[in-house]
């Protein structure tokens, strides 16, 4: 049987008694439904976790440990087999899933761009396109050249796409932003800039960040809390 254990690595922010968790997981069990090829093993068993409002939570763990799965549960893209998840004190099941996903916005590990230019792709989450000035200002903050705005989005590099995806999620104006290895394909200098911008954003807007990273050297220093997921296997 496999189970996931959360280890508190360090916690550097004074936690006030009155801070309410924006997201809380209670006793989550999760197994991927069996596919045609194989029977799945549980990814989480009895996982509990609180995410404080406005904090930066870094999720660390080796590849295959369940970081992406955790974010998919948080964004309601997977349904837990047992236990409950709460957003601002209310059970996920009380929310309309699309409305919930606009509040808890996920940037997937593999960036997805659709037909059309970057401009269109940045505005996919909006009902009407944002003005170019706004888009350009966001792009500038994340180190994307203005020329990219009119370029076919699919021709961007993976690192550029990843940052464009993050901007796309920010434009939806979520309460919680879930980032799945956002700096995996960016050079160290850009990574640093990205981390700085995210911290600034979190401060400015009180945005809560759940940040997956297999390498905590980049984001660890700015985290309010780092948790590690270890997958312990014993084939009984």
């Amino acid at each position: 049987m496999i189970c996931a254990i959360l280890k508190e690595s360090f916690s550097c922010k004074v936690e006030f008694m009155c801070i309410k968790p924006v997201i809380e997981l209670r006793n989550i069990d999760f197994v991927y439904p069996p596919s045609l090829q194989a029977k799945e093993k549980p990814v989480f068993k009895g996982l509990s976790l609180k995410v404080e409002q406005g904090s930066i939570l870094v999720v660390n763990g080796p590849s295959g440990s369940g970081k992406t799965t955790l974010l998919r549960l948080l964004s309601s893209m997977e349904e837990p087999g047992g236990g409950s998840i709460y957003f601002e004190g209310r059970d996920y099941r009380e929310f309309d899933p699309p409305a919930l996903r606009r509040k808890i916005s996920m940037t997937p590990q593999i960036p997805v761009m659709l037909e059309g230019d970057t401009r269109r792709n940045l505005c996919l989450g909006l009902n009407k396109p944002a003005p170019d000035e706004a888009l350009l200002s966001w792009m500038g903050r994340f180190g994307l050249e203005p020329e990219l705005l009119g370029k076919r989005a699919e021709s961007l590099s993976v690192g550029q796409k990843q940052r464009a995806c993050v901007i796309r999620n920010i434009l939806v104006d979520p309460v919680v932003l879930l980032l799945d290895e956002p700096t995996a394909s960016i050079d160290p200098a850009s990574s640093e800039r990205f981390v700085k911008q995210m911290v600034r954003l979190s401060k400015e807007r009180g945005l809560t960040l759940v940040w997956n990273s297999h390498d905590i050297s980049v984001v660890g220093p700015v985290a309010d809390r780092v948790i590690s997921i270890d997958r312990i296997c014993d084939d009984n």
């Binding site: 893209m77 699309p98 996919l124």
Partner: peptide, 13 residues
């Protein structure tokens, strides 16, 4: 698949 999940993540039905 990826496109559909993207729309869902962005809050479309």
């Amino acid at each position: 698949k990826n496109e559909i999940e993207l729309w869902l993540i962005l809050g479309r039905d």
